[in-house]
Write a protein that binds this DNA or RNA. Structure first.
Lengths: 244, 244
DNA sequence: TAGCTAATGTACGCTATCGAACATAACATA
DNA sequence: TATGTTATGTTCGATAGCGTACATTAGCTA
């Protein structure tokens, strides 16, 4: 189950942050899974069967309104886990989880995770701290939606996504980005054009490459850094302690 | 400590939902407090000394941007608690908590609450379920910020506030409401004028009275009901089980 | 190579909201 | 009663983003 068909260049940081003894106990409960672009990990209101720990994939938490309009409320990658409603006690949430960037990850059955959470050990504390960081991402998104321009939000979205891929490239059409940000596709075209003309990014038919990250970080609104700081503060052991 | 200087028409629903034995243990740790309009319960990044259980007060969770622009991300009243970052493990959050409607409540020292949470009993599970409901409120706010008009958001805000007061009156200037919603005061004046002309509300210099709640509920966007449903689903014992 | 499709570019009028300035009205206090 | 202050009302031009329609381009497939 845990054997990887392809070598995993990076593991999930939450799992890596576990003490050795806890990790060894949990390891047999992890099932390796591939996630394809657009795949739905869970629906609004649906019972969660598993929690997911992405490694090379990125998953978006989306809200879809009755009108069909949508908005992304958080991005989850190798720093986190999907399905927090399981251990928070609600079993389900009104949000969707959609794979935004295809890749790999691990999943764990709901009942096993709940049992593990109930032990009250390092796993529980890690999950709770991660949840608080996720809350910060969600609330900062709310504020960003209110006050910042599409261009700034695009910068934020690019940086948050890239951080979770540890790469400089993204495969994502402007149409999909527009759905995530809850704006028109044309708005993304315009904002992306500006960034390209400024030499920060380069894109073509669904391939986005960051050319000048420092410049991008100067253009982005404060929201990006606030979220990043909270993740670093709450989950500080993420960069050390790698287990390969 | 627990003795109320004035009779408490309603208690805090979270505390009321506790089993008798847990409540009796916790009761001596609760300190009755009055909260005045505009009072700050905690600052962005500040260490939390207490958690607060409002009874007749309402508190807003606010984000303030560097520019000074602000946005409310959640409303907390007698259904909830302030200071979730304490038991989530972060100790602090980037948000502010400001008293939006003066009133009473209880508070509990941080160390005592953390100890209580660590018992892993009903208190812990209640707090976690409440946190999930709060997350829903925050994320729905994010979507509402993106897609709905000021008028719809004002309706949502009024209904959420009134639910937490169990009253038909609010004391709140349009200026303050504008700060909460993160819009201009003039925008609130215009939206409130519409609602008044439609006979839904009546207001004058900081006093808002709801005249036709059913009509208000027809005008509000879906966001209100989504949040309400999640609170009812996650914390169902709130209306029964009163302890006076 | 031709043709198809998906992705991106562009243009236009429309609307909600903004920013600013100022007018009016209600209440508070002297 | 006079006066100051706070809350609300109104106006006006500016702008960001929307909805729609259509044009162009890159890459795939026949």
């Amino acid at each position: 189950m845990v054997s990887s068909p392809t070598p995993q260049p990076q593991q999930n940081h939450l799992l890596e942050a576990l003490p050795e003894s806890d990790y060894l106990r949990i390891q047999p409960m992890l099932e390796h899974v591939s996630m394809s672009l657009g795949q739905t990990l869970y629906e609004s209101g649906g019972q969660l069967q598993h929690v997911y720990f992405p490694t090379t994939s990125i998953v978006s938490l989306l809200y879809v309104l009755e009108s069909g309009a949508s908005a992304e409320i958080a991005i989850v990658g190798n720093e986190g886990v999907l399905g927090i409603a399981l251990f928070m006690g609600g079993e389900t949430t009104p949000s969707h989880a959609v794979v935004q960037s295809a890749g790999e990850g691990y999943r764990m059955r709901a009942s096993l995770l709940k049992h593990e959470f109930a032990r009250g050990g390092p796993m529980m504390h890690l999950l709770l701290r991660y949840t608080q960081a996720l809350i910060t991402q969600m609330t900062q998104t709310a504020v960003c939606n209110r006050h910042h321009s599409i261009e700034q939000q695009l910068c934020r979205w690019l940086l948050l996504s890239l951080d979770r891929l540890s790469a400089n490239d993204l495969h994502m059409t402007q149409e999909l980005i527009a759905n995530m940000l809850g704006v028109r596709r044309e708005g993304v075209t315009e904002a992306a054009g500006k960034l390209q003309r400024a030499g920060m990014i380069e894109y073509s038919r669904g391939n986005i490459r960051v050319l000048d990250r420092p410049k991008l970080e100067k253009t982005v609104c404060e929201c990006y850094q606030v979220v990043k700081n909270e993740f670093d503060r709450l989950l500080p052991d993420m960069q050390r302690n790698h287990r390969h």
